[in-house]
Computed example of a mutant assay.
Amino acid sequence: MRVLPCGDQALLVETESLEEALGLYRSLRRESPPGVTDLVPAARTVLLRLGPAADPALVERDLRTRDMTAAAHEQGPLVRVPVHYDGEDLREVADLTGLPVREVVRLHTGCEWTVAFGGFAPGFAYLTGGPRELRVPRRAESRTRVPAGAVGLAGEFSGVYPRSSPGGWQLIGRTDLAVWREDRDPPALLRPGARVRFEEVRPS
């Protein structure tokens, strides 16, 4: 790993993989060095925000002695997300993967995803742990408007759009579950470390 100063009150840890970043984040969330006030995970990094009394050298020493593999497999809370699998790109995803549409749905609902990190927009969670068969590229052209609740795929990730916004992910379904509500504490339903199971809503 590489530990880099980030301004006067933060350290940025660069890791070799997403799994290593997740392991470090979970380890730090369980027990942070003195003076660490916030953690921000990403695909290959973890940002540590430091309070005024923190000693960056001591924090870095703590980071380099951590066993991240032990924390990598800790399980967070389970969130069930009901999905109507009628997305605009569902057929395109089936064509890209060479799978029948029903197999795409079966694979998406048949595994447990994990929230790796948030980004792009408040409440947008990057979910990892899905089957390799569902790894598809982003759309060649982004949409100017993706509705709130749209469920998509891009690369190794799945995600739920928390609000209407532009977006380039392959849309395979939609959920009525509010993954972001400003009147909720915390507002984001899908937070790093949480486990996610997508469940198909069958037409009535």
Rank of each mutant, 00 (worst) to 15 (best):
A42Q: 02
A140K: 07
R139W: 13
H84P: 01
G7P: 02
R30E: 15
L127P: 01
A116C: 05
R102V: 15
R145P: 03
V36R: 01
T175C: 11
E74F: 01
C6T: 07
P77A: 13
S164H: 04
P5W: 15
D86T: 11
W169C: 00
V79E: 09
E133Q: 13
G155M: 05
T97W: 04
E19A: 15
L177A: 01
R184C: 13
A70G: 10
T15E: 08
D67F: 12
L11D: 07
S17Y: 00
A43R: 07
T114Q: 15
P187V: 02
R195I: 01
R106K: 10
R132H: 13
P147I: 03
A148H: 04
R184F: 00
R135W: 15
W180P: 05
V93W: 02
M1R: 13
Y161G: 02
V136Y: 15
V146A: 09
V136P: 04
L127F: 13
V3A: 02
L22F: 01
D89V: 01
A70S: 11
S27L: 10
R191H: 08
G155I: 07
E31F: 07
T128C: 08
E88F: 03
G173I: 01
G123L: 08
D55E: 15
R64F: 09
G35V: 10
R66T: 11
T144L: 14
A72G: 06
L18V: 06
R102S: 15
D67T: 10
R202I: 00
A21W: 15
V146C: 11
P52K: 08
V40C: 00
P122L: 00
A54F: 03
P122D: 02
E133Y: 00
E156A: 13
L28M: 09
T37L: 03
W169S: 00
V196P: 03
T114D: 06
D183N: 13
W169G: 00
G76K: 11
V105T: 12
E16Q: 09
E60W: 10
P82H: 06
R138M: 01
G76N: 11
R197M: 06
A94R: 14
H84L: 11
P52Y: 10
F157Q: 08
W113N: 06
T69F: 15
P192T: 05
D38G: 07
R202H: 14
P203V: 04
A53F: 14
V36Q: 05
L24W: 08
A72P: 03
A121F: 15
T15W: 00
A116L: 09
P137T: 02
R80M: 06
E20Y: 00
P56E: 07
R139L: 02
A125V: 02
V151P: 14
L58S: 13
R61Q: 14
S165L: 05
A72M: 04
V104T: 04
D8N: 09
P166R: 04
A43T: 10
A21K: 12
P82E: 06
P100T: 10
R163S: 12
G168N: 07
D8F: 12
W113H: 11
D8G: 14
V115G: 09
E112T: 14
P100W: 00
E103L: 06
R135E: 15
F157A: 02
I172S: 13
